[in-house]
Simulated assay, not measured.
Amino acid sequence: MISTDLPWRVAFLTLIKIGLLGNSSLLCFYTFTLISGLNLRPVDKILNQLVLANCFVLLSKGIPQEMADWGLRYFLDDVGCKLLFYLHRMAREVSLSTTCLLGGFQAFKLCPLASKWMELTVRSPKSINFLCALCWVLSFLLNVHVAVKVKGADRSQNTSMGKAFASCMAPSTSIVTYSLLSSIVFFIDYVLLGLMIWASGSMVLFLHRHKQRVQHIHSHKVSPRLSHEDRATHTILILVTMFVLFYSISSIVTLHMALLLTPAKWLADTSVFMSLCFPTLSPFVLLSSDIRISKLWLAWLEKCRSFLFYVGLCITQGSLEDYHK
Protein backbone atom coordinates (compact mmCIF):
# COMPACT_ATOMS: atom_id res chain seq x y z
CA MET A 1 0.00 0.00 0.00
CA ILE A 2 2.86 2.35 -0.84
CA SER A 3 2.25 4.91 -3.49
CA THR A 4 4.40 5.08 -6.60
CA ASP A 5 2.64 8.09 -8.08
CA LEU A 6 4.77 11.14 -8.75
CA PRO A 7 2.40 13.64 -7.02
CA TRP A 8 2.63 11.69 -3.76
CA ARG A 9 6.40 11.44 -4.08
CA VAL A 10 6.70 15.20 -4.51
CA ALA A 11 4.24 15.84 -1.66
CA PHE A 12 6.10 13.60 0.81
CA LEU A 13 9.49 14.92 -0.28
CA THR A 14 8.34 18.52 0.19
CA LEU A 15 6.75 17.88 3.58
CA ILE A 16 9.75 16.05 4.99
CA LYS A 17 12.39 18.52 3.82
CA ILE A 18 10.44 21.62 4.87
CA GLY A 19 9.46 20.05 8.18
CA LEU A 20 13.00 19.00 9.07
CA LEU A 21 14.31 22.45 8.15
CA GLY A 22 11.77 24.28 10.31
CA ASN A 23 12.01 21.94 13.31
CA SER A 24 15.81 21.77 13.28
CA SER A 25 16.00 25.58 13.17
CA LEU A 26 13.65 25.90 16.13
CA LEU A 27 15.43 23.10 17.99
CA CYS A 28 18.74 24.96 17.69
CA PHE A 29 17.12 28.20 18.83
CA TYR A 30 15.33 26.73 21.86
CA THR A 31 18.36 24.66 22.86
CA PHE A 32 20.58 27.73 22.76
CA THR A 33 17.99 29.69 24.75
CA LEU A 34 17.75 26.95 27.40
CA ILE A 35 21.53 26.67 27.72
CA SER A 36 22.29 30.39 27.72
CA GLY A 37 19.21 31.49 29.66
CA LEU A 38 18.82 34.60 27.49
CA ASN A 39 15.16 35.74 27.24
CA LEU A 40 14.13 32.35 28.61
CA ARG A 41 10.40 31.74 29.02
CA PRO A 42 8.82 28.92 31.05
CA VAL A 43 7.07 27.61 27.94
CA ASP A 44 10.35 27.26 25.99
CA LYS A 45 11.07 23.87 27.55
CA ILE A 46 7.72 22.56 26.40
CA LEU A 47 8.20 23.98 22.90
CA ASN A 48 11.70 22.51 22.71
CA GLN A 49 10.27 19.09 23.51
CA LEU A 50 7.54 19.55 20.90
CA VAL A 51 9.94 20.34 18.04
CA LEU A 52 12.21 17.45 19.13
CA ALA A 53 9.26 15.06 18.97
CA ASN A 54 8.34 16.50 15.56
CA CYS A 55 11.85 15.76 14.29
CA PHE A 56 11.57 12.15 15.45
CA VAL A 57 8.16 11.77 13.79
CA LEU A 58 9.46 13.08 10.47
CA LEU A 59 12.58 10.92 10.62
CA SER A 60 10.87 7.70 11.70
CA LYS A 61 7.76 8.01 9.52
CA GLY A 62 8.65 10.32 6.67
CA ILE A 63 12.09 9.03 5.68
CA PRO A 64 11.04 5.34 5.37
CA GLN A 65 7.92 6.42 3.48
CA GLU A 66 10.04 8.49 1.10
CA MET A 67 12.45 5.59 0.57
CA ALA A 68 9.54 3.25 -0.11
CA ASP A 69 8.04 5.68 -2.64
CA TRP A 70 11.28 5.75 -4.62
CA GLY A 71 11.58 1.95 -4.62
CA LEU A 72 14.83 1.66 -2.65
CA ARG A 73 15.91 -1.77 -1.51
CA TYR A 74 15.11 -2.95 1.99
CA PHE A 75 17.96 -2.72 4.51
CA LEU A 76 16.35 -2.97 7.98
CA ASP A 77 16.47 -6.22 9.93
CA ASP A 78 13.98 -7.30 12.58
CA VAL A 79 15.59 -5.18 15.31
CA GLY A 80 15.80 -2.13 13.05
CA CYS A 81 12.14 -2.53 12.10
CA LYS A 82 11.10 -2.72 15.75
CA LEU A 83 13.16 0.35 16.68
CA LEU A 84 11.81 2.34 13.74
CA PHE A 85 8.16 1.76 14.57
CA TYR A 86 8.73 2.09 18.29
CA LEU A 87 10.46 5.45 17.79
CA HIS A 88 7.60 6.65 15.60
CA ARG A 89 4.86 5.65 18.03
CA MET A 90 6.75 7.07 21.02
CA ALA A 91 7.49 10.37 19.24
CA ARG A 92 3.88 10.61 18.09
CA GLU A 93 2.67 10.05 21.66
CA VAL A 94 5.14 12.64 23.01
CA SER A 95 3.94 15.13 20.41
CA LEU A 96 0.33 14.47 21.46
CA SER A 97 0.98 14.76 25.21
CA THR A 98 3.24 17.81 24.78
CA THR A 99 0.64 19.65 22.70
CA CYS A 100 -1.93 18.82 25.38
CA LEU A 101 0.48 20.08 28.04
CA LEU A 102 1.06 23.26 26.05
CA GLY A 103 -2.66 23.96 25.74
CA GLY A 104 -3.29 23.21 29.41
CA PHE A 105 -0.34 25.39 30.45
CA GLN A 106 -1.76 28.41 28.65
CA ALA A 107 -5.35 27.71 29.73
CA PHE A 108 -4.43 27.56 33.43
CA LYS A 109 -2.21 30.59 32.99
CA LEU A 110 -5.17 32.61 31.75
CA CYS A 111 -7.56 31.35 34.40
CA PRO A 112 -7.99 34.04 37.09
CA LEU A 113 -8.68 31.47 39.83
CA ALA A 114 -5.53 29.49 39.09
CA SER A 115 -3.11 32.35 38.43
CA LYS A 116 -1.47 32.26 41.87
CA TRP A 117 -1.19 28.51 41.80
CA MET A 118 0.36 28.68 38.33
CA GLU A 119 3.00 31.14 39.51
CA LEU A 120 4.04 28.86 42.38
CA THR A 121 3.83 25.41 40.82
CA VAL A 122 3.27 24.87 37.11
CA ARG A 123 5.45 27.77 35.96
CA SER A 124 8.37 26.67 38.17
CA PRO A 125 11.28 25.03 36.29
CA LYS A 126 11.12 21.86 38.38
CA SER A 127 7.42 21.35 37.66
CA ILE A 128 7.88 21.89 33.93
CA ASN A 129 10.86 19.51 33.87
CA PHE A 130 8.81 16.90 35.70
CA LEU A 131 5.84 17.23 33.32
CA CYS A 132 8.08 17.05 30.24
CA ALA A 133 9.87 13.99 31.60
CA LEU A 134 6.51 12.42 32.44
CA CYS A 135 5.47 12.75 28.78
CA TRP A 136 8.51 10.73 27.68
CA VAL A 137 8.16 8.09 30.41
CA LEU A 138 4.46 7.49 29.74
CA SER A 139 5.07 7.36 25.98
CA PHE A 140 7.93 4.93 26.53
CA LEU A 141 5.82 2.59 28.67
CA LEU A 142 2.64 2.94 26.65
CA ASN A 143 4.27 1.75 23.42
CA VAL A 144 6.38 -1.13 24.71
CA HIS A 145 3.95 -3.53 23.04
CA VAL A 146 4.99 -2.10 19.64
CA ALA A 147 8.48 -3.59 20.01
CA VAL A 148 6.87 -6.95 20.79
CA LYS A 149 4.21 -7.18 18.08
CA VAL A 150 6.18 -5.71 15.14
CA LYS A 151 8.26 -8.05 13.02
CA GLY A 152 10.66 -7.31 10.20
CA ALA A 153 10.51 -8.71 6.69
CA ASP A 154 12.54 -11.65 5.47
CA ARG A 155 15.83 -10.22 4.21
CA SER A 156 16.67 -13.39 2.34
CA GLN A 157 14.00 -12.54 -0.22
CA ASN A 158 14.47 -10.03 -3.00
CA THR A 159 12.13 -7.53 -1.37
CA SER A 160 11.75 -3.88 -2.19
CA MET A 161 11.73 -1.26 0.54
CA GLY A 162 8.06 -0.58 0.03
CA LYS A 163 6.89 -4.18 0.52
CA ALA A 164 9.22 -4.72 3.48
CA PHE A 165 8.18 -1.51 5.12
CA ALA A 166 4.55 -2.54 4.90
CA SER A 167 5.28 -6.02 6.32
CA CYS A 168 6.93 -4.46 9.38
CA MET A 169 3.44 -3.85 10.74
CA ALA A 170 2.52 -7.55 10.95
CA PRO A 171 1.31 -8.25 14.49
CA SER A 172 2.79 -11.23 16.32
CA THR A 173 0.22 -11.23 19.16
CA SER A 174 -3.31 -12.60 19.27
CA ILE A 175 -6.22 -10.58 17.99
CA VAL A 176 -7.69 -10.21 21.48
CA THR A 177 -4.44 -8.90 22.97
CA TYR A 178 -3.83 -6.63 20.00
CA SER A 179 -7.38 -5.21 20.22
CA LEU A 180 -7.04 -4.66 23.98
CA LEU A 181 -3.73 -2.82 23.65
CA SER A 182 -5.03 -0.74 20.76
CA SER A 183 -8.14 0.18 22.76
CA ILE A 184 -6.01 1.36 25.69
CA VAL A 185 -3.82 3.48 23.42
CA PHE A 186 -6.80 5.01 21.61
CA PHE A 187 -8.56 5.70 24.93
CA ILE A 188 -5.55 7.60 26.30
CA ASP A 189 -5.11 9.46 23.01
CA TYR A 190 -8.70 10.63 22.93
CA VAL A 191 -8.59 11.63 26.60
CA LEU A 192 -5.67 13.88 25.71
CA LEU A 193 -7.57 15.17 22.69
CA GLY A 194 -10.51 15.94 24.96
CA LEU A 195 -8.22 17.91 27.26
CA MET A 196 -6.93 19.81 24.23
CA ILE A 197 -10.47 20.70 23.19
CA TRP A 198 -11.24 21.85 26.74
CA ALA A 199 -8.10 24.00 26.79
CA SER A 200 -8.97 25.45 23.38
CA GLY A 201 -12.48 26.30 24.55
CA SER A 202 -11.09 27.98 27.67
CA MET A 203 -8.69 30.08 25.61
CA VAL A 204 -11.40 31.07 23.12
CA LEU A 205 -13.64 32.11 26.03
CA PHE A 206 -10.81 34.18 27.51
CA LEU A 207 -10.13 35.92 24.20
CA HIS A 208 -13.83 36.68 23.77
CA ARG A 209 -14.12 38.18 27.25
CA HIS A 210 -10.89 40.12 26.82
CA LYS A 211 -12.15 41.55 23.53
CA GLN A 212 -15.35 42.69 25.24
CA ARG A 213 -13.35 44.39 28.00
CA VAL A 214 -11.11 46.14 25.50
CA GLN A 215 -14.14 47.51 23.63
CA HIS A 216 -15.13 49.46 26.74
CA ILE A 217 -11.74 51.17 26.88
CA HIS A 218 -11.61 54.35 24.82
CA SER A 219 -7.84 54.40 24.62
CA HIS A 220 -6.24 52.13 22.06
CA LYS A 221 -3.36 51.34 24.37
CA VAL A 222 -3.42 47.92 25.98
CA SER A 223 -0.97 46.75 28.62
CA PRO A 224 2.06 44.92 27.20
CA ARG A 225 1.36 41.88 29.38
CA LEU A 226 -2.11 41.44 27.94
CA SER A 227 -0.79 41.95 24.43
CA HIS A 228 1.88 39.30 24.98
CA GLU A 229 -0.64 36.88 26.51
CA ASP A 230 -3.03 37.38 23.62
CA ARG A 231 -0.28 36.65 21.11
CA ALA A 232 0.83 33.51 22.97
CA THR A 233 -2.77 32.36 23.34
CA HIS A 234 -3.45 32.75 19.61
CA THR A 235 -0.31 30.75 18.77
CA ILE A 236 -1.10 27.88 21.12
CA LEU A 237 -4.72 27.87 20.00
CA ILE A 238 -3.62 27.51 16.38
CA LEU A 239 -1.24 24.67 17.29
CA VAL A 240 -3.89 22.78 19.27
CA THR A 241 -6.49 23.23 16.53
CA MET A 242 -4.05 21.99 13.90
CA PHE A 243 -3.16 18.92 15.92
CA VAL A 244 -6.77 17.97 16.64
CA LEU A 245 -7.73 18.46 12.98
CA PHE A 246 -4.89 16.46 11.41
CA TYR A 247 -4.97 13.74 14.08
CA SER A 248 -8.72 13.28 13.70
CA ILE A 249 -8.53 12.99 9.91
CA SER A 250 -5.60 10.56 10.12
CA SER A 251 -7.45 8.42 12.71
CA ILE A 252 -10.63 8.32 10.60
CA VAL A 253 -8.70 7.27 7.50
CA THR A 254 -6.75 4.63 9.45
CA LEU A 255 -9.96 3.23 10.94
CA HIS A 256 -11.54 3.11 7.48
CA MET A 257 -8.51 1.20 6.18
CA ALA A 258 -8.79 -1.32 9.03
CA LEU A 259 -12.42 -2.04 8.11
CA LEU A 260 -11.57 -2.75 4.46
CA LEU A 261 -10.10 -6.02 3.25
CA THR A 262 -8.14 -4.39 0.43
CA PRO A 263 -7.80 -0.65 1.13
CA ALA A 264 -6.82 1.60 -1.73
CA LYS A 265 -3.35 3.07 -2.06
CA TRP A 266 -4.57 6.62 -1.73
CA LEU A 267 -5.99 5.86 1.72
CA ALA A 268 -2.60 4.75 3.02
CA ASP A 269 -0.93 7.77 1.44
CA THR A 270 -3.55 10.13 2.88
CA SER A 271 -3.08 8.69 6.38
CA VAL A 272 0.68 9.16 6.23
CA PHE A 273 0.32 12.62 4.69
CA MET A 274 -2.02 13.79 7.48
CA SER A 275 0.29 12.39 10.16
CA LEU A 276 3.16 14.47 8.72
CA CYS A 277 1.23 17.74 8.33
CA PHE A 278 1.36 18.85 11.97
CA PRO A 279 5.12 18.26 12.54
CA THR A 280 5.76 20.06 9.24
CA LEU A 281 3.54 23.13 9.70
CA SER A 282 3.75 23.70 13.48
CA PRO A 283 7.34 25.06 13.57
CA PHE A 284 6.45 27.79 11.09
CA VAL A 285 3.55 28.87 13.31
CA LEU A 286 6.04 29.22 16.16
CA LEU A 287 8.61 30.97 13.94
CA SER A 288 6.10 33.56 12.78
CA SER A 289 4.80 34.34 16.27
CA ASP A 290 8.00 34.53 18.34
CA ILE A 291 9.22 38.13 18.63
CA ARG A 292 12.69 36.96 19.68
CA ILE A 293 13.17 35.14 16.40
CA SER A 294 11.92 38.17 14.47
CA LYS A 295 14.46 40.36 16.27
CA LEU A 296 17.26 37.92 15.47
CA TRP A 297 16.16 37.83 11.85
CA LEU A 298 16.11 41.64 11.61
CA ALA A 299 19.52 41.87 13.31
CA TRP A 300 20.94 39.35 10.86
CA LEU A 301 19.50 41.27 7.91
CA GLU A 302 20.99 44.47 9.29
CA LYS A 303 24.41 42.86 9.55
CA CYS A 304 24.10 41.53 6.02
CA ARG A 305 23.13 44.98 4.78
CA SER A 306 26.08 46.55 6.60
CA PHE A 307 28.44 43.92 5.21
CA LEU A 308 27.22 44.43 1.66
CA PHE A 309 27.51 48.18 2.07
CA TYR A 310 31.09 47.77 3.32
CA VAL A 311 31.98 45.48 0.40
CA GLY A 312 30.45 47.91 -2.07
CA LEU A 313 32.35 50.79 -0.49
CA CYS A 314 35.65 48.90 -0.73
CA ILE A 315 34.99 48.06 -4.38
CA THR A 316 34.14 51.68 -5.12
CA GLN A 317 37.30 52.96 -3.42
CA GLY A 318 39.41 50.42 -5.28
CA SER A 319 37.90 51.49 -8.59
CA LEU A 320 38.60 55.18 -7.82
CA GLU A 321 42.23 54.43 -6.94
CA ASP A 322 42.69 52.52 -10.19
CA TYR A 323 41.12 55.41 -12.09
CA HIS A 324 43.51 57.97 -10.59
CA LYS A 325 46.50 55.79 -11.36
Rank of each mutant, 00 (worst) to 15 (best):
K151P: 02
L52R: 02
A268V: 04
I184S: 09
G103L: 08
C135V: 12
I46F: 04
S167W: 11
C111F: 00
E119W: 10
N54P: 01
S250R: 08
K221D: 08
L21E: 05
P279V: 00
D77R: 03
S182D: 09
D69T: 15
A147G: 06
L110V: 13
V222Y: 01
V10C: 08
F85H: 13
F309N: 11
N48Q: 15
T121P: 02
L245T: 13
T159Y: 00
L205Q: 09
H228T: 06
L96N: 05
D78Y: 05
A11V: 07
M67V: 07
G194C: 04
K221H: 11
K325P: 06
L83G: 02
F273I: 02
L181H: 03
L83P: 00
F140I: 04
D69Y: 12
T121G: 14
S223E: 14
K221W: 12
L192P: 01
L287W: 10
W300M: 09
K211S: 12
V94M: 08
H145N: 11
A147D: 01
P279F: 03
Y74V: 03
V214P: 00
Y86T: 13
G80Y: 10
V253H: 02
L58K: 02
W266K: 06
G104H: 02
N129C: 15
S294T: 08
S179T: 05
I18R: 04
P263Y: 08
Y86R: 03
C304G: 09
C135W: 02
F105A: 03
H220R: 10
L34M: 15
K61I: 05
L308D: 08
W8C: 04
A107M: 03
I217E: 14
K45H: 14
C277M: 14
D5G: 13
S202C: 13
S60C: 06
Y30S: 02
R155K: 14
F108I: 12
Q215I: 14
I238P: 00
L301T: 01
M169N: 10
F140W: 14
L237Y: 08
W297L: 09
M169H: 10
L281H: 01
V79L: 14
G19Y: 00
V204M: 12
N54Y: 01
R92H: 13
G103E: 01
F85T: 06
F130G: 12
R92A: 14
L142E: 10
I16A: 09
M161H: 10
W300P: 00
I217R: 04
A164P: 03
C314M: 13
W198D: 01
L313I: 07
L101Q: 03
T177F: 09
S200I: 12
A170N: 07
R9I: 11
R92K: 08
R73I: 11
I184P: 06
L27W: 11
I175R: 10
G22R: 01
K17Q: 12
T4I: 11
R231G: 03
S160V: 07
S319C: 08
G103F: 09
A133S: 15
E93T: 15
M1R: 05
L26Y: 02
I293R: 04
F75T: 15
V146N: 01
A53R: 05
G312Y: 01
L38A: 10
S250Q: 07
T98I: 10
